[in-house]
Amino acid sequence: MDVIEAMRTTGTCRYYRDDPVPDDVLYAAFDAARFAPQGGNRQPVRWIAVRDQALKTALAERYLRLWREEFAPTGPSAPVADRHSKALTPSRDHAEHFADAPVILVLCARESALKVTDSNLGRTSVVGGASIYPTMQNLCLALRSVGVATTVTTMLCREEPAVRELLGIPDEYLTAAYVCAGYPARPFPARLRRRPVEEFVYLDRFGDPLYE
């Protein structure tokens, strides 16, 4: 598959077939993903492929509780949920069937290996993610190229201490995301809706459009 087509059609899959993702398919995707850029080539990323049903269920119980806290009538996203209740259905379905994903890939990173240059700016630090998330995106694209769909979520990162104990993650590693992966029960999207380039690319100064 052409890489541009993969980028334009990867999307988020919330409905999976029961078929397992073979070891060799995962291996090839991980093998491609590892060439993503990262600060100082420190290679902080580690993955845990969770297939055990009991472990998936334990993760799913925590995920569903967090999802309900977020989108329940009194949750912080309640107004959004109310306005977009129909659009929220796939997200709810995914939360309720989180354990049904053939494999849940837990993205971990060794904190001491992250090149963090924005920790003293008085805002949320994000730069360390530059050594983590390109690898994740490479993985999603590599899987998409062979017909495997993915869903990325960070909601479970709020449960890091419990997940660390559940999966035996050492203290020096943080959890950065969870990637559900499997063969999609529905077709891949033919077209994803995103802002046009004209709205978010500027020339020289923020707000001055490069493209009219």
Rank of each mutant, 00 (worst) to 15 (best):
L105K: 03
P189N: 05
Y133N: 06
S85E: 09
P73T: 08
R186L: 13
Q137S: 08
C157T: 15
L167A: 11
I169M: 08
V80W: 13
V127S: 14
V116Q: 06
V127L: 11
A181L: 04
R92G: 03
R144Y: 07
R110K: 14
L114A: 04
V80M: 12
P90Y: 09
P79K: 07
V127C: 13
G129P: 01
A78V: 07
L174S: 15
L139N: 00
T153D: 07
A176C: 11
S125W: 06
A142G: 04
A99E: 15
L121Y: 14
V106F: 06
P76N: 10
H94P: 00
G168K: 07
Q137N: 10
D82T: 12
R144D: 03
V179H: 02
P73D: 07
R92Y: 09
V148E: 00
D100A: 15
G122K: 06
A109W: 14
G168I: 09
G129D: 01
Y133R: 07
E159R: 10
S145R: 06
F98R: 05
A177D: 00
P102H: 02
A142K: 00
E165M: 10
I104Q: 12
C140R: 03
Y183G: 00
V152F: 02
L192S: 03
P161G: 09
T135M: 11
E96S: 10
L192F: 03
Y133C: 05
A95L: 05
L139C: 01
S85L: 09
T89A: 12
N120R: 14
M136C: 10
C108N: 04
L107S: 06
T89H: 06
M155P: 01
R164Q: 14
C108G: 02
A185E: 05
G168Y: 10
A190R: 11
R83I: 01
G168F: 09
A130C: 12
P189L: 05
M136D: 02
V103K: 01
K115Q: 13
T151W: 05
A101C: 08
S131V: 02
E165K: 14
L141A: 02
A109R: 05
Q137L: 11
P134S: 10
G122T: 08
G168P: 07
T74C: 03
P102F: 01
Y183H: 05
L139V: 01
E159V: 10
G75N: 07
Y173M: 15
N120E: 14
V127A: 15
Q137A: 09
T124H: 12
L192I: 11
S145G: 04
A181E: 01
K86L: 14
L174G: 15
G128I: 04
C108Q: 07
E160D: 14
R193L: 11
R195M: 15
G122C: 05
R191H: 11
R186A: 12
V103L: 03
P189E: 04
R193M: 09
L156V: 10
C108P: 02
L192V: 11
A78C: 06
D100K: 13
S85T: 10
C140L: 07
A95P: 04
V126G: 07
A95T: 05
H94A: 13
A162R: 12
D118F: 14
A142W: 00
S77F: 13
C108W: 02
D118Y: 13
A109I: 08
H94I: 04
A181Q: 01
